[in-house]
């Protein structure tokens, strides 16, 4: 479903993503991890056609990222971490607009939107009357997730999708993506909440400074490195060792 061959992105002299290669088949949920500035968002932006790679190649559902970017875009859904929406549209207007961009008429999109409204407990009145600028962060996130899944894409990229969602919505969302993966979708899940990644993902890809560090099943990786948890594996592999000690020392400076 997703295939990267030495995908690289440079901003001037700075290499954000450095010859990244991996494959993701359908039906898999892959946790895409890395510390801040590792190149995760840049990789996701390249894979969704928002940024042009400097070198290397990638295909999504067999479509080449460079030469068939519109086809690629038709086959992916993306929830960006910014959660940006057009704030002066109502939720319904926004979703109808997104549907239209994928060639789905309002009449066909509306029943589908209603299903999402029911699932996310959004309320048709809220969605139809209230401008997105007045939504809470969680409600806005639900609209953005709906907009990513509305056209039923075979590949979905989530960048911090749980940001702002309440506990109930988060539980429902996790079940949703697991079921979607069983139905055959390839899901890339980027997040810093590692215990969720450990529970939800079949596989973890960890990058740092734009390079691939490890790639494998979370339990196998944790066992192979003797880390105990994914969180500890992450700090071990990304130069975070000794952080607890440093935090304790720093906390001592607050003593009056």
């Amino acid at each position: 479903m997703i295939s990267l061959q030495r995908l690289t992105k440079r901003f001037g002299t700075q290499t954000a993503v450095d010859a990244l290669s991996f494959e993701i088949p359908s039906g898999q949920i892959v946790g895409f991890l890395g510390p801040n500035g590792a190149g995760k968002s840049t990789t996701l932006r390249m894979l969704t056609g928002m940024l042009e790679p400097t070198e290397g190649a990638a295909t999504i559902c067999g479509f080449d990222l460079r030469t068939q970017s519109l086809e690629v875009k038709r086959h992916v859904g993306f929830v960006p971490d910014s959660g940006a929406v057009f704030e002066s549209l109502t939720g319904l207007e926004y979703l109808e607009m997104v549907a239209a961009l994928y060639g789905i008429s309002s009449a066909a999109a509306l029943p589908r939107i209603e299903q999402f409204i029911t699932f996310f407990d959004l309320g048709m009145d809220t969605l139809g009357d209230k401008l997105l600028g007045a939504y809470s962060k969680g409600m806005r996130r639900k609209v953005v997730i709906t907009a990513a899944l509305l056209h039923n894409p075979p590949v979905v990229f989530f960048d911090e999708p749980l940001d702002g969602l309440d506990a109930n919505a988060a539980v429902g969302f996790k079940t949703l993506i697991q079921t979607l993966a069983r139905e055959g979708k390839a899901i890339v899940y980027s997040s810093h909440v590692l215990d969720v990644v450990e529970r939800v993902c079949d596989r973890v890809i960890l990058i740092d400074k734009g390079r691939l560090i490890v790639d494998g099943r979370p339990d196998s990786l944790v066992a192979a490195h003797g880390s105990g948890t994914l969180e500890k594996l992450f700090t071990q592999l990304t130069g975070g060792s000794g952080l607890e000690r440093r935090a304790e020392d720093f906390a001592k400076t607050f003593r009056s």
């Binding site: 519109l70 875009k73 910014s82 940006a84 929406v85 961009l101």
Partner: peptide, 12 residues
């Protein structure tokens, strides 16, 4: 901001 909303959609 618009990049995050529209650029990953199939819009020429």
């Amino acid at each position: 901001e618009e990049a995050d909303i529209l650029m990953h959609r199939p819009v020429p």
